[in-house]
Amino acid sequence: MKAFDYAAPTSVADALKLMEPPHTAALSGGTDLINRMKDYVSSPERVVYLKDIDALESIESSSKGVSIGAGATLAALLEHGEIKKTYPSLWKAAYEVATPQIRNMATVGGNLLQRPRCWYYRAGNGLLALKDGKSLVREGDNRFHAIFMTDGDALFVNPSSLAVPLIALGAKATILGPKGERTVPVAELYRVPKGSQERELTVQHGEILTKVVVPATHAKNASYEARHKQAHDWPLALASVALEMDGQKVGSARVVLGAVAPVPLRSEAAEKAIEGKALNHESATAAGDAAVKDAKPLSMNAYKVQLTKVAVKRALLAAVGDRYWEEG
């Protein structure tokens, strides 16, 4: 880790001031940034510690929904009764993130804005891992990489588990910067970088993510994560669904996929496949199949197509309380 200057403001205003210089990084839980710094993948000259800002930590629910401070830890999110009750997709996704210690440290903002876990990126090959014009990912070991949008150079997967349900639930993120506050749908926190100079995050230098607001909903919602280990592991595929029911049928649906593309990916094909249908094994399976219609796996990750199918199917069925795979 390179040496850096350090500041720990206690107000957002001070934080913004401190964030102004270039090569400044915001630090909250530290479970991503500090690891990147240790590996010299990121070497900020200044680190602004945001966890002393109490104002960023609150989780408040009202008739309009729930507002989650970016500085709220995943542990705090999990202890929030309203989130568990109304937004089980979000709760479950957070429940499956990492470990108790990480959930105590890591924040909602940090989870959303963590950098990709692509092992080529983490080994210092840059975000796109291009070498002599060739993609190390495409040529190399891509078992954990993208199966969607693979025509481009961005073959890493978005690592945020929370972004997936938040997008399905229509959550918005509030970002504070030198020019004031802006609010964007959570999906717009991400982009597919066009070149090596572009990041996959849209938050600009000097800006701070302050909160996400999840609108009130009656939608049935659920997440399903396929992973290798039961203990600490990353999702191989993750799906979140939010379904506005129309009687016994699905009125409108939001289906979002995680860990399979450089951004959290809404699957309109899956949504269309399930809308207007009664939710059962047949329709859920069809929606899962539809979700992977455009998948183009790399040399080693065709298995993730199957996992994505199943994640969509299981998230849909879980939303109506069918967890058939737990019955054997």
Partner: peptide, 20 residues
């Protein structure tokens, strides 16, 4: 191992997976 760069891709205790 990465065939192109010749390095180990999971020299850690996270993507080098061990039971919890």
């Amino acid at each position: 191992m990465d065939p192109t760069t010749g390095v180990m891709l999971n020299p850690d205790m996270e993507l080098y997976k061990l039971a919890g």
